[in-house]
């Protein structure tokens, strides 16, 4: 049985997104992604006010032996970032889908959300990638 939250949407590049219902969305990386990376030591967040495009890299998560780009699943403007990650990047390891959120975006086009995966499709993707 999967623990992947049903209420979230997912990108193939392993980010999750929560539709806040007010034209904004919260974004982080999946439990699976944090597991692959191992103990995170640094998170480089986008700047508030920055424009992000769907599929463009806008943040970096860094472990001791790897650094990985985080891609925005949607197009819009960054309205808030999770500054607590600056001092405690391990929050993502501990709670990827909750306190480990990374940034919030004001959506240009809420319709974009439909192109993202649901929990079952994401689980299937992870299984297919052979992990």
């Amino acid at each position: 049985m999967s623990d992947t939250p049903k209420e979230l949407r997912y990108a193939k590049s392993h980010e999750w997104l929560r539709d806040e219902g007010d034209g904004t969305a919260t974004i982080g990386i999946s439990e699976h992604a944090q597991e692959l990376l191992g103990d995170l030591v640094f998170v480089d967040l986008p700047e508030v006010g920055a424009k992000v495009e769907a599929g463009s890299d806008c943040a970096v998560v860094e472990s001791v032996k790897a650094a990985s780009d985080v891609y925005s699943p949607v197009t819009g403007e960054v309205i808030e970032v999770n500054e607590s990650l600056d001092d405690a990047p391990e929050t993502i390891n501990e709670n990827a889908f909750g306190n480990g959120w990374m940034f919030k975006v004001k959506l240009d086009d809420a319709g974009e959300l439909d192109s993202l995966l649901d929990a079952d499709a994401y689980d299937a993707l992870v299984a297919e990638e052979g992990y």
């Binding site: 640094f42 860094e62 472990s63 001791v64 032996k65 790897a66 650094a67």
Partner: peptide, 9 residues
């Protein structure tokens, strides 16, 4: 801070 370096990044 090796994630800055070419062998990783």
């Amino acid at each position: 801070l090796q994630a800055r370096e070419q062998h990783i990044r």
